[in-house]
C-alpha cells in the first residue's frame, strides 16, 4: 500500500482578536491508500482545522505552514484554482451534521450530481444514472424517487448516507469524515461506520475519520493519531494505541470510555478541560491535567518520538512504558 497523503509539520494559525493563534501545531502523519486513518482528541484539539487546512477551507484570514503532499502535490502550496479541482474530486468531505451540511432547498439530485457534472463533465442523464447507483450503494431505498426529494424528507441516518453518496460522486481517493456519526442516534451510528468500512474496501478509498470518541475508532480505524492542544500526543496502529497506550492522554481517553460490562462505575473522566485557542500551556500541553507530570514536563515541548514499529509518542518521561 502506497502513501496517499503525507502531512509534515502542519501548523495552522487562526485569526483572533489578539492576533494569530495556533490551532494546529506541527502535526506530522501519513495516510496510506485504502486505509482508515483516525484522528482523535477532545473537542477543541484542532481536528477539524486539520481537515479544513487540507481542503483549503480554513476560516477567514487563517494561515498555514508545513506541507501536505497528496498524490505528489503539496495541497498547502496550491493556488485556489488548483485546489478547487482537487476538492470534491480527489478529496471529499463528510461533515458532522447532515441536517445542516445538505442544502435544505436543493433536490437530492442536484446535490449528488452538480460537482460530478462540473468535475467530470458528464451530462444530465448520465449523472442521474450514476446518482441512482450511488444512492443504492449507500443503501437508500427507492433511489429514483429519492433524487426528486429534499433533505427534510429523510431521517438523520439517511441524510448522512446521502451526504456520503455526495462525497463519493466523483470517486475520490480520500474521504475526510469529520465526526460522521456524532450527530446521529446511537442505533444508526454502527450502520454508517460499517458503510464507510465497506466503501473503502470496495473502492480503494482512504478515509480519515475524525472523532472525539475512541469507541468509534476501535470500530473502523487502521491507524490512529491522538491530538491534544493542536499537537500529536500519540500515533500508531489501532491495536497498539488502544490496547497499549503509551501517552497518559490516550490512557485518560480510554479510561473515560464506558466499559460494556462495568457500567458507569468504571467511567473515569480526565480532570480539567482542554486548553482554548491561544492558551496552550508551555512544555507538554497536557501537563496541567496529567497525573504523571514531572518538573521537566512544564518546560520542554515534547516531540513525538518512535517507541515501537510505526508508533510514536510525545511523552519523554514515558510513565506507561513499563506497562506494555
Amino acid at each position: 500500500m502506497g502513501t496517499l497523503l503525507e502531512v509534515e509539520d502542519l501548523t495552522v494559525w487562526l485569526a483572533t482578536r489578539n492576533g494569530p493563534r495556533k490551532a494546529v501545531d506541527g502535526l506530522t502523519f501519513r495516510v496510506d491508500s485504502g486505509e482508515v486513518f483516525g484522528i482523535a482528541g477532545e473537542s477543541g484539539s484542532g481536528k477539524t482545522m486539520t481537515a479544513m487546512a487540507l481542503l483549503g477551507l480554513l476560516p477567514h484570514a487563517a494561515r498555514t505552514s508545513g506541507r501536505a503532499v497528496f498524490e505528489g502535490r503539496d495541497l498547502l502550496a496550491m493556488k485556489p484554482r488548483e485546489l478547487r479541482d482537487v476538492r470534491g474530486r480527489s478529496i471529499a468531505m463528510v461533515s458532522q451534521d447532515p441536517s445542516t451540511s445538505l442544502h435544505p432547498m436543493l433536490s437530492i439530485e442536484t446535490q449528488v450530481t452538480e460537482h460530478m457534472r462540473h468535475h467530470l463533465g458528464v451530462g444530465k442523464s448520465e449523472a442521474r444514472g450514476r446518482a441512482v447507483e450511488l444512492l443504492s450503494t449507500v443503501r437508500i431505498p427507492d433511489p429514483e424517487r429519492a433524487l426528486r426529494a429534499h433533505p427534510a424528507q429523510f431521517s438523520g441516518g439517511m441524510r448522512q448516507r446521502i451526504a456520503i453518496a455526495v462525497a463519493l460522486a466523483c470517486e475520490p481517493r480520500l474521504l475526510l469524515a469529520d465526526e460522521p456519526t456524532t450527530a446521529l442516534d446511537v442505533t444508526v451510528q454502527a450502520g454508517i461506520l460499517r458503510l464507510l468500512n465497506r466503501l473503502r474496501q470496495e473502492r480503494d478509498l482512504a478515509v480519515v475519520v475524525i472523532t472525539h470518541d475512541l469507541g468509534v475508532m476501535s470500530a473502523v480505524a487502521d491507524r490512529i493519531c491522538v491530538m491534544y492542544g493542536g499537537r500529536t500526543a500519540e500515533i500508531g496502529p489501532r491495536e497498539t494505541v488502544l490496547t497499549h497506550p503509551r501517552h497518559p492522554y490516550t490512557r485518560g481517553l480510554l479510561d473515560a470510555l464506558p466499559h460494556p460490562e462495568g457500567g458507569a462505575a468504571t467511567l473515569r473522566p480526565i480532570p480539567g478541560s482542554p486548553p482554548s485557542l491561544g492558551a496552550v500551556p508551555e512544555g507538554c500541553p497536557f501537563h496541567p491535567r496529567c497525573a504523571f507530570a514531572v518538573a521537566s514536563c512544564r518546560e520542554e515541548r515534547p516531540e513525538p518520538v518512535p517507541v515501537g514499529s510505526d508508533h510514536r509518542v510525545a511523552c519523554p518521561p514515558d510513565p506507561l512504558g513499563g506497562e506494555a
Binding site: 470534491g88 461533515s95 445542516t100 451540511s101 432547498m105 462540473h118
Partner: peptide
Amino acid sequence: GNDYVRAARAKGLPERVVIVRHVLRP
C-alpha cells in the same frame, strides 16, 4: 456561515456557482 455553504465549497464548485445556487437562493 452555514455548513451547507462550506459543503458546497468542499465539492470544488466555482465560487460563482456556490454564491448563486447555494447562497443566493436561501
